[in-house]
Design a binder for these strands. Sequence first.
DNA 1: GGATGAATAT
DNA 2: CATATTCATC
Length: 98
Amino acid sequence: MREDDSNWFAGWEKELPSQLQLPSSQANSRVVWSQQLHERFLDAVEHFGINHAVPKSIMEFMDVDGLTRVEVASHLQKYRLYLQKMHHLMHAGVGSIS
DNA sequence: GGATGAATAT
DNA sequence: CATATTCATC
């Protein structure tokens, strides 16, 4: 069966590492929200509930060394805008494709 | 007096 | 466009 599928989600078949660490080379640079960082973030938000997820709790649940509350808050704002946009599209009617 | 979040800046 | 910073409010 599918032996050549070894590249399928490489690394995701294992557990996530207990603690991610931002490379020191970007410690003074903008945080690059990689897929794993995003997944940790989404897991935390959905764990607490969209209405109870606050940056400090998310930051502690993610347990990512080097990530600050303000950086999480910045992305949380963007995530909320993403949800709002999607919610708005539902009510607006998804008619205008193109 | 810090945490949160919308607005705003870079 | 993605992230950081500002700022008013809780």
